[in-house]
Design a protein around this nucleic acid. Structure first.
Lengths: 340, 340
DNA sequence: CTTTAATATGTAACCGGTTACAGAAACCGG
DNA sequence: CCGGTTTCTGTAACCGGTTACATATTAAAG
């Protein structure tokens, strides 16, 4: 429209128009070397006149920095992602970094280090649970590409910083609450996916609570939840039909707690009178369901914020904390028997 | 560790080692020109031996293509984003494009065309409602940078493709349902934010339904919902305390429907017997609340998919549909009085 | 008023790919 | 066996910034 010519205006055009050298223009743009005011003015004038926009890729090629960080996620199920993203974005944005997202939903956990997120394209990468295989991680680790793991601790031998939430203590406390405040004794635990660490620690907390109360662990009371509503519902149905007695359920996450509700409701059991139910995560719907779910709140936004900060720090000076546990807190609603 | 030398291995190193020209190596990598097998083999050998990884930024500088598309969102409230993202990612990923995300949550709607998402850094951009000011849009439009709008139609004078959901017909039908199937007459409408288009069309559908039934529009029955639980709750409280009579509520979105539930519950009114309630969006919690909410399902994932496809098409050949309306469907649950 | 040190600019060589163009090799019909 | 294609391969000039180093300018010192 305007000029007719396809050519981009470059730093050299600006230099010519301002009657100075390209180096000066570059220095003016980056403000990284002293420059006389008279020259600065001329450059500024030329730049605005030519409507000059520096070519980011050229800069990146020359400096070998991308000012971009990569985000590798498995899938965006649940209410998990938005707050996490919000946390991450708030710190990366502040620091002037772009965010490149890649989901492995289509492909399953990447077995290869994803080239689109690797060096040359990002300065570092945030890796969520289940998004990158151990082999893929290893590739990144070897070239010591900056990485921080989220909700996943590093495999043996690799020391990669990790940030996740405090699972065990909160789980222990919520189960203790069921026992102490509401006198429950036969508490079902609904597991998460097999190698999920959150699930592992939540189960550990559950077992510790039993142990402290001298209640023997009963394998019959543990069933799959898979972080999935339908699976959890089926598990509870099974327990019920097999005549197994229980007076409470600790669901590994709120999603499966919702499944518990359905199964219990269908069987005519009331919550919390017949069976108390508690979950983990404090998803958005948890406050709305009936009765409102007692659960553990994970400050997911903080997790994102902290992870991003760690990554920036690695990129900047190579240091980071090897493990950060973000505190969790129990939110007492009605499904456990409180606030009747 | 390995070599001790900092230098990256480049295409020239590969060429030298394979005893061929850089052009051949480039052609081998891109498979864009015939190459004798003998040469191909030598190059492949050299590449694996040197562990060569092409430098993406160099390629981008040379080709002036980024293979990246930008995603500009306001904030990631609600259940809105994950499915949308999923849809987008599925098509961009398939096409080999990266996704650069920028949220304007920290800053409010961008008034400037965000340089990090602009030309040089992305090949095109998906813009959500409320994320970019009209001025910002205009800048992009002038340089005819590929854009498609999501849930927002272009301001006057600019013809930018847009994809959103069908709001009006579904709204009309759900209100008609309230009238015909359940005999409701005094139906409250809870508005969304002021200049939100979804809200506008939903209200239009509401009015049409009234009109077709010969029921006069009553301004007293329209109150703010703002897509916000608390605001909606307060609005219903007000109506109630002012003694305004109504037998149904059409909430502009499910979030505000949840607020309606609270207000009604607090006032001792039952749903759907005293007041029928319907919403819009079919958020995740809507099936879980009590009673399950009758609402309109928007196929958000499709919106994302279609928008992404449109954008790729613009990038590819410059063409696109100026408006795509993704169909919606009513899901009948219990809050309207169905399935008792 | 030189001599020397400090500072501001400019020149040109990078960064690591792509690709227009030209030259070489292989193929083909007559 | 020769000119005319057709198909491969190589050279070198880009893409648009940054920056080490050299040079011009100016200030400080002697």
């Amino acid at each position: 429209m305007t000029k007719g010519k396809k050519k981009n205006t470059t730093i050299r055009d600006v230099a010519k128009k301002a009657g100075v050298s390209v180096a000066s223009v570059s220095r003016y743009i980056n403000q990284n070397a002293p420059l006389s005011t008279s020259i600065s003015i001329k450059i500024q004038a030329a730049m605005t006149e030519l409507n000059f926009v520096p070519h980011i890729m050229a800069r990146r090629l020359a400096t070998n920095k991308t000012n971009t960080i990569g985000l590798l996620v498995a899938d965006l199920y649940g209410d998990f992602f938005p707050p996490m993203f919000h946390g991450i974005e708030s710190v990366t944005g502040e620091a002037g970094f772009d965010l490149l997202i890649s989901s492995s939903a289509r492909t399953g956990p990447r077995t290869e280090f994803p080239s689109s997120l690797g060096p040359h394209n990002t300065d570092g990468m945030l890796v969520f649970w289940d998004s990158l295989s151990e082999a893929g991680l290893h590739q990144a680790y070897e070239r010591d590409f900056p990485i921080v793991l989220i909700h996943q601790s590093p495999p043996d031998k690799m020391s990669i910083p990790c940030v996740t939430v405090e699972n065990k203590a909160a789980s222990r406390r919520i189960v203790e609450h069921l026992m102490e405040a509401h006198g429950r004794r036969r508490i079902v635990f609904l597991r998460g996916p097999d190698h999920n660490e959150d699930s592992y620690w939540r189960e550990t907390g559950y077992r510790q609570a039993l142990e402290m109360r001298g209640i023997p662990f009963d394998a019959e009371l543990v069933a799959p939840g898979e972080f999935d509503r339908a699976v959890a519902e089926q598990s509870i149905r099974n327990l019920l039909s097999r005549g197994i007695v229980f007076d409470a359920v600790f669901a590994c996450d709120d999603e499966s707690a919702a499944g518990v509700y359905s199964a219990l409701y269908a069987a005519g059991r009331t919550i919390p009178n017949d069976v108390a139910v508690v979950g983990f995560d404090d998803q958005r719907f948890s406050a709305y369901i009936n009765p409102p779910l007692t659960t553990v709140r994970a400050h997911t936004e903080d997790v994102g914020r902290i992870a991003a900060r760690q990554l920036l720090q690695i990129i900047h000076d190579g240091t980071a904390d090897s493990l950060t546990l973000v505190p969790t807190e129990i939110v007492f609603r009605q499904s456990c028997g409180c606030n009747p």
